[in-house]
Design a protein around this nucleic acid. Structure first.
Lengths: 118, 118
DNA sequence: GTAGTAAGTATCTAAATGGGTACTATATTA
DNA sequence: TAATATAGTACCCATTTAGATACTTACTAC
């Protein structure tokens, strides 16, 4: 039993789902794996998410200590997001997910020109 | 670009999130990793999920070919769920998630008597 | 004859999520 | 003078998701 933010989790798996299970969380973390990104860059990488959604997910990730938000006091604003040490621990999870997705596409003969190229 | 079920995914990560990102999906898959379970057993393992939610998630996992649903024509009903070959490919993902959760709890000094015991 | 069982479905309501638009700041550019 | 840029927030409305409860089947036990 794990208590975190007024919620009880029965196992570490439940906690992990809570931490990275949000709509665009895993995707954001995935893009942050290899580099720091500005808000606008993340928005360009995940165009299907509205600005509100992105902000929400980023705030939640920051609150859970998975990413670091660095604000530059400039106009127009500049905000950079990067993985925290805790966030970097997610690399095995994200790598495994990506690999699973690839295998799934191959085994289910799903149309994917980009996979044929690479 | 990947097309699956009338939806376009920009990368395999997005597809992976779609497949296992549902409310209780990763948890169900996690419990199915080492054994076949009846519906009532899953319900007992995940009491916070309503029957409707569980049925929904199980149906979705079945549709995506991650689990196998075996119905025994009996009364009262008996239905067994197990991982498909595709579902078994998720083991590295689920193991990594569990490990991440453990590390997260340790590093954030979250109250967890069960972790102290094990 | 009634209750219990397993795995659901059906229906209604409540809550969370998501989309759209407008608004903010200040410096630079056209 | 007006537009552009960035990273948001505020507000309202629509959709989706989730919860609660009742109902089903056919057999068995009390």
């Amino acid at each position: 039993m794990i208590k975190y933010k007024n919620t009880v989790f029965n196992c570490t798996m439940e906690l992990a789902i809570e931490l990275i299970g949000g709509r665009y969380k895993a995707l954001i973390l995935w893009y942050l794996l290899d580099r720091t990104l500005r808000f606008s860059e993340i928005k360009r990488l995940i165009p299907q998410a509205t600005q509100k959604m992105l902000t929400q997910q980023l705030r939640s990730l920051e609150e859970d200590g998975l990413i670091i938000r660095k604000v530059y006091p400039e106009v127009p604003p500049k905000v950079e997001y990067s993985l925290s040490e805790s966030g970097k621990n997610l690399k095995p999870v994200l790598d495994a997910m990506c690999q699973f997705g690839k295998t799934y596409v191959e085994e289910h003969s799903i149309y994917s020109p980009s996979l044929l190229q690479s």
